[in-house]
Design a protein around this nucleic acid. Structure first.
Lengths: 241, 241
DNA sequence: CGTCAACCTGTAAGAACGGACAGCTTATCC
DNA sequence: GGATAAGCTGTCCGTTCTTACAGGTTGACG
């Protein structure tokens, strides 16, 4: 498959109307790249009680169930290196260094489930993070050559998958707009260290009204006080101090 | 240049000890990809009073001066589409749609300075954003074919440049370490809505000590109260609620 | 052994917050 | 015209924060 054809196939991904359609197209693309499976986990507003999680599963159901029920996110070394350590360049699996027995065990279990080798890419945007992996079930003759050759297009594919996933997620409703303009303004000034009285002077409204908006904002954000509301609004990208 | 060679050249970039060395290597890599210039702007902690900005300039000094003195960030359509609109897939310049006269004028000025065509890539990580562009001074015979062909490796190159830039920035001093472990812990619980008393129970220290750490953290962050300290710590990536 | 940094603790007074009470205006939509 | 949503305003009271005062402990380093 040459580059131009691949690009056209990638462009088609972001038009996918449903996750199922995306999965079908992606399975095809991944096989054209010389891989058997893929795995995509994307989370907007990570570490929140209600993260929007988008997962596409191109591997065996057994492995996926195992991953979820055992909360393998904490022991998955690709997640650690790409998300927590913020590695932005591709991660071929032979570069993975396990830092504790749990990670080692996890990788062993992956091999047992047929995830023999592969390469993982980091998905990053302002308020979302994720991992996209291309996976080989069987080890080919020249593993490193095979994988390395696919890295440039794989890296590009990761970006397209992220774009496609976001479009699908956006269609499912946008909680960012749940705050009114005033509520965001009050939160913004509160995040800048202003008291309710100071904000009232700035916004030319009464102190009581500032308190009113902050209270409402906190309620909408599902938290119980002002500090937490500020933290949540920043993490969700609703305000930019 | 085949993929494997390119990958080796990319790997070498992240070892660059200084911005000048990176620039020299990058100039070579970019020309191998068939482009004349590059432009890289990366900003950590955007929208803060003291953002860490990293810029590498592979274009004419005149254009760079013009870009900076006229604060073209606000009218650069690549910045709008890649950063504000969060487009994560590559942006060939023929896909740029100017949405106002200022942007149109900006693109005209770019052409006047010899930035004829190119492709821009988005650089994204949790607390940094940027744009990396590959630029053609002269329009080749088959422009679209030429640029499209370079997109996969260009996209990968962008990730390596981002990684290299971060390593250089980290070497220049890391303000994230200015908070002690306890101060970050107290901030984290405060951001979760816990009062000083509640945090004291969690951390098994006295309420007074929690207040002490929060006060110190606020002072170190250059702010005057707890709310602002929480906001700043989150934006700077020191804590993750 | 002195010094330093990080950590820990206490009291007290005034300012700010949180929650509950009750009620207004304005614009939009059916 | 009635209903609804967004915005706005006031008082009261208990809780929490902020800032000031004045200390002690522990471990690393020269």
């Amino acid at each position: 498959m040459n580059h131009i054809q691949a690009l056209q196939q990638f462009e088609a991904l972001i038009q996918a109307p449903t996750p199922d359609a995306l999965h079908a197209q992606l399975t095809d693309v991944v096989q054209n790249l010389g891989f058997e499976h893929y795995l995509c986990g994307l989370s907007a507003n990570l570490n929140l009680p209600d993260p929007k999680v988008f997962a596409l599963n191109g591997v065996s159901q057994a492995w996926w169930d195992h991953y979820q029920t055992r909360s393998c996110l904490a022991v998955d070394p690709t997640v650690r290196m790409l998300l927590r350590e913020q590695r932005v360049i591709p991660l071929p699996w032979w570069d993975i260094r396990c830092i504790n027995p749990s990670e080692k065990q996890f990788m062993g279990e992956a091999v047992d489930h047929g995830l023999n080798s592969g390469v993982s890419f980091s998905l990053n945007a302002r308020h979302e993070v994720g991992v996209f992996s291309l996976i080989l079930k069987h080890q080919p003759r020249q593993l490193r050559r095979h994988v390395s050759h696919a890295i440039p297009l794989g890296n590009l594919l990761a970006a397209y998958v992220q774009e496609a996933a976001r479009r699908l997620m956006d269609n499912q409703g946008n909680p960012g707009s749940k705050l009114t303009r005033r509520e965001k303004e009050c939160l913004l000034w509160a995040a800048s260290g202003k008291t309710a009285w100071e904000s009232s002077v700035i916004l030319n409204i009464s102190e009581r009204t500032v308190v009113f908006h902050l209270t409402n904002a906190a309620r909408k954000l599902g938290v119980s006080n002002r500090r937490q509301a500020i933290a949540r609004a920043i993490v969700e990208g609703l305000i930019r101090p």
